[in-house]
């Protein structure tokens, strides 16, 4: 971020610089780091170091609030006279940073699947991960993943058998299995699906009879007929998927 912010300053893109600093604070420090830092994972030295770094970056934009917060951190020196943070290649942990991003992706995908299935936030679901070579990394972050993805139980294995009747998320070599029964109210879902199937079948039937109608085939322009045929095959495909899903629920 520092490199980019400096570049923005050089090019007088002050708005971009300010926005980048704010995004860092909000979507990296607050949304992830502070969340991860709860409980046993807390590391005050790093937490304070990063806080001070971004206060320095913020200072030119919002001098008063940043100086006020600084007063709680440093009794002697004022923020206005601090040194501007610099890029430090000693502190560029490329490999570890990638690992953390993988964990974020994993948590994000589980979270979005939860919202796709409209799982209540209070409801814990279970997960089994086949992590391959990333097992060590995920093991060391088991508590974080479990807490932030709202998991009831989390098992991390190197590899294993395909688990039926579960949703699967693939991130590179990692496979995450989320048993459907945790996420779904089966009865409600069955009800919804069978309604949808009936509707689909009715629609397909009418489409078929239209395409069997000699008058329509003779008079309609070719493109229209082609379009209707395409539509029919799409609808049949969806119907098949719905029926498979229905089977998996039973």
């Amino acid at each position: 971020m520092i490199k980019e912010v400096d570049k923005d300053f050089e090019n007088f893109r002050l708005s971009d610089a300010g926005t980048k600093i704010y995004d860092f604070i909000w979507s990296k420090y607050c949304d992830w780091y502070l969340e991860i830092s709860k409980g046993e994972n807390k590391n005050p030295a790093v937490l304070l170091f990063v806080l001070k770094e971004f206060l320095k970056l913020l200072h030119p934009f919002v001098p008063f609030v940043s100086e006020k917060i600084w007063e709680f951190l440093e009794k002697k020196d004022m923020l206005i006279a601090e040194n501007w943070p610099t890029f430090d290649k000693e502190l560029i942990f490329t490999k570890e940073a990638k690992g953390m991003e993988l964990i974020h992706e994993l948590i994000n995908k589980i979270r979005s699947l939860r919202s796709e299935f409209k799982v209540e936030p209070s409801k814990k679901i279970n997960a089994i991960i086949y992590a391959g070579d990333q097992k060590v990394l995920l093991d060391s972050n088991l508590e974080v993943i479990k807490r932030m993805a709202l998991l009831g139980s989390l098992e991390i294995k190197k590899s294993g058998q395909k688990i039926p009747e579960s949703k699967i998320i693939c991130i590179k070599e990692i496979e995450v299995y989320l048993p459907l029964k945790d996420m779904i109210d089966t009865e409600k879902e069955l009800n919804r699906v069978s309604k949808e199937i009936t509707q689909k079948e009715r629609f397909i039937k009418s489409l078929r009879s239209k395409l069997n109608n000699q008058g329509f085939i003779k008079n309609a322009p070719k493109e229209v007929i082609e379009k209707e045929k395409e539509r029919l095959s799409e609808e049949e495909n969806t119907l098949k998927k719905l029926k498979d899903f229905q089977k998996s629920l039973k």
Binding site: M1, I2, K3, F24, K28, Y29, W32, Y33, I36, S37, N41, N43, P44, A45, V46, L48, F49, V50, E53, F54, L73, P85, F87, D88, E90, L91, I92, F93, T94, E96, A97, G99, M100, E101, I103, L137, S140, N141, V144
Partner: peptide, 26 residues
């Protein structure tokens, strides 16, 4: 007491630490 810690590279421990520091200092 934490506020008096003089930060050094040694304090950087977890993957999360390294990630946040990288994102700040790059």
């Amino acid at each position: 007491k934490d506020k008096k810690i003089k930060f050094t590279k040694k304090h950087i421990k977890s993957v999360a630490d390294k990630w946040i520091i990288r994102n700040c200092k790059n």
